[in-house]
């Protein structure tokens, strides 16, 4: 069934988009991530112009993270204060990202940078997660309990000034790394069209030592706002948000997420992380493949921009 996308100015298959949304939603529900890092590459593989894929991806992320954050809010596994500080950094990073995005687009290098960032971040995060989770699985087989949090350990981050206490997360840490992390995520959100959960979650766990149960809710909470901010700014500056496209993805995504969450509850933490790592690596490899393999045509057209 065809549907015409008013902003992308093309006809696409509605069923494909709903299925795409559902598949991403299923995975995001299962792993507790926003799914933006899957949506944007999938849209690009489906020939949606990258500029529109990125901005629309940000819009779609709002729906899935709002849905997820609601659940965490009810369970009380959400640190509003930590989320607020992350968000402050996020807005700054996102604003910078939007200008860089428009500049790269005028240079004709947007596609390249988007792909490179995806390959680099997905490759690194996927690789680290895979190593960590395989170790955890081995440890679990060896009879030891697999734990991530080692409260006794302190790193350089804990020696920075301007410390702040985050009660829900049970941490006492400088605001500098928190703001910085927020800014990096915001920057990536606007350039890559992701919520940044796949970077936020490991960073909160490993760098700031936030307890795992609070991490996902807090990450989703701040992603809602960063993605919303990114969507509005992309729409204002670049007019690249396609609501029809975003809506189809959201509908599929919200439905898929519910089933994903059920499957996710049946799997063990480290198995889940290993699976997610494999998935993340697969997307990175697919994007890298496109960068290094000779394209079908070395020429491309762009309308309007001079």
């Amino acid at each position: 069934m065809g549907i015409y996308l008013p902003i992308a100015e093309m006809s696409v298959n509605m069923v494909v988009l709903l299925a795409m949304g559902a598949a991403v939603g299923f995975l995001s529900g299962m792993f507790g991530v926003g799914g933006g890092f899957l949506v944007t590459p999938l849209l690009i593989f489906y020939n949606i112009p990258p500029a529109i894929a990125v901005a629309t991806g940000a819009n779609q992320v709002i729906a899935s993270s709002f849905s997820g954050a609601l659940a965490h809010f009810k369970r009380g596994t959400l640190d509003m204060k930590l989320g607020g500080v992350l968000l402050t950094g996020g807005v700054v990073g996102s604003s910078i990202g939007i200008y860089v995005f428009a500049y790269l687009r005028s240079l004709g290098q947007l596609d390249l940078i988007v792909s490179l960032l995806y390959v680099a971040f997905l490759g690194a995060v996927g690789g680290l997660m895979l190593v960590e989770s395989v170790r955890a699985i081995r440890r679990a087989r060896g009879g030891q309990a697999a734990t991530l949090r080692r409260p006794g350990q302190h790193n350089w981050i804990h020696r920075l000034p301007l410390k702040m206490r985050f009660r829900a997360s049970k941490i006492f840490v400088s605001v500098i790394p928190v703001l910085g992390l927020g800014a990096i995520i915001g920057f990536l959100a606007s350039i890559m069209g992701v919520g940044g959960g796949f970077i936020m979650v490991p960073a909160l766990i490993y760098l700031l030592k936030v307890p795992t149960n609070v991490v996902i809710g807090t990450s989703l909470f701040q992603i809602i706002f960063v993605a919303a901010f990114t969507t509005v700014v992309h729409s204002t500056a670049n007019q690249t948000v396609d609501v029809v496209l975003a809506f189809l993805l959201m509908v599929g995504g919200v439905a898929g997420a519910q089933y994903g969450a059920r499957v996710g509850q049946k799997l063990r933490g480290e198995q889940l992380r290993a699976l997610l790592a494999v998935l993340v690596l697969a997307v990175a490899l697919r994007l890298a493949f496109d960068l290094f393999v000779r394209p079908a045509s070395v020429y491309s057209l762009a309308t309007g921009a001079v």
Binding site: I62, T231, S235, V241, V243, V254
Partner: peptide, 15 residues
């Protein structure tokens, strides 16, 4: 842009 955000919030909530 605001409308797009609103659509997303409502869809997420309804879902």
């Amino acid at each position: 842009g605001l409308a797009a955000v609103f659509v997303a919030i409502v869809t997420g909530w309804l879902g």
